[in-house]
């Protein structure tokens, strides 16, 4: 389905986007562009200024680039991947620059991803963590956490040459879902392993053979058998992108004429309406074969009658 193809292409783009270098020029642009626009708008507005009316408060045309807050949010994409976005206030960075002096320019900006499953995270008790280097223009990141069924927290921070880590922002904690069934069973609702495997296959729609189920489940995730492909907003009101070259030819016939405006006209025996000036025009899809089209006009006093009969032969070679 066309929509599905689009989705697939998008995914390819997302995977590419994960490099932050791409974000850099974009962020710069966004920062500088509104300034020029503001000047332009001012000049433009001055041109049309009418002193009698109280000037209305102008509606912002675009969303702000930043909200001047320190903020980092972590989101779950799926059992393996996380997404985080953040914003650091200019003042926060300046303060660090001031405090760290020379070390600031030598520090690497990193995302530190903590596994905080089943603990109350205090900044130092994570089960493990790993770092991802990011450049200073990046404001979001997709993280391959690789750990379904775990809890995660992320810091944006500075890694100093000596190995010291300074946290700038800390995210909320999220939990990634399991990528398969839980290992935990319920004593009261016990179920044997092979029975569960069969049930699992049935529920996922792959029949009851446990051997196939796991492989098929993974395929399901990759091959998009889910409904989302055509779920949500309907109206894919457009033609599918067809790659094969094609041609369609149809023919129509226009039968038109004129008589006295008050005459009665029939075409192939059926009454038709005339325009106020006595003209008429009919349009027909023209299939192959012979069409005999008697057009008959009778005057309003029924004294005069005229019949003209075009005969049309259409052949498709």
């Amino acid at each position: 389905m066309a929509m599905l193809r689009n989705v697939k292409n998008k995914i390819k783009k997302v995977t590419k986007k994960i490099s932050a270098e791409k974000d850099a020029p974009k962020s710069k642009l966004k920062k500088e562009y509104p300034v020029d626009q503001a000047v332009e708008t001012k000049i433009e507005t001055a041109k049309y200024y009418t002193p009698e009316r109280r000037p209305e408060r102008a509606m912002q045309q675009d969303l702000p680039f930043s909200y001047d807050v320190d903020r980092m949010v972590l989101q779950v994409r799926d059992p393996w991947w996380l997404h985080t976005y953040w914003e650091v206030r200019h003042g926060t960075i300046e303060k660090l620059r001031h405090e760290l002096k020379d070390d600031f320019s030598k520090a690497k900006r990193v995302l530190r991803v903590y596994d905080v499953s089943n603990i109350i995270f205090d900044g130092s008790n994570a089960h493990r963590f790993f770092d991802i280097s990011v450049n200073e223009y990046a404001t979001n990141w997709y993280i391959d956490a690789g750990g379904p069924g775990r809890s995660w927290c992320v810091d944006l921070g500075l890694l100093l040459p000596g190995g010291r880590f300074i946290t700038i922002l800390r995210s909320n904690v999220v939990h990634t879902p399991l990528e398969g069934p839980s290992w935990i069973t319920d004593e009261e609702w016990m179920i044997p392993e092979d029975m569960f495997a069969r049930l699992y296959g049935l529920g996922i729609g792959f029949g009851s053979s446990p051997a196939k189920v796991k492989r098929l489940w993974e395929q399901r995730l990759k091959r998009e058998i889910t409904s989302g492909a055509i779920s949500s907003v309907s109206s894919p009101g457009r033609r599918p992108q067809e790659k094969k070259f094609w041609l369609v030819v149809n023919t129509e016939l226009i039968v038109y004429g004129a008589t006295e405006p008050d005459a009665t006209v029939t075409v192939q025996g059926r009454h038709i309406n005339l325009r106020p000036d006595g003209t008429f025009s009919l349009r027909f899809a023209l299939p192959d074969g012979e069409q005999v089209i008697p057009v008959k006009a009778v005057s309003s006093d029924k004294q005069d009658e005229r019949v003209i009969t075009p005969v049309v032969n259409k052949k498709t070679k």
Binding site: D78, L221, S227, G228
Partner: peptide, 19 residues
Amino acid sequence: PSASSWGWKGYNEMWLQGS
């Protein structure tokens, strides 16, 4: 229940991607 959706790939990716 496990976090899930009925969208493409079964989780949040349909609503969380580059676009």
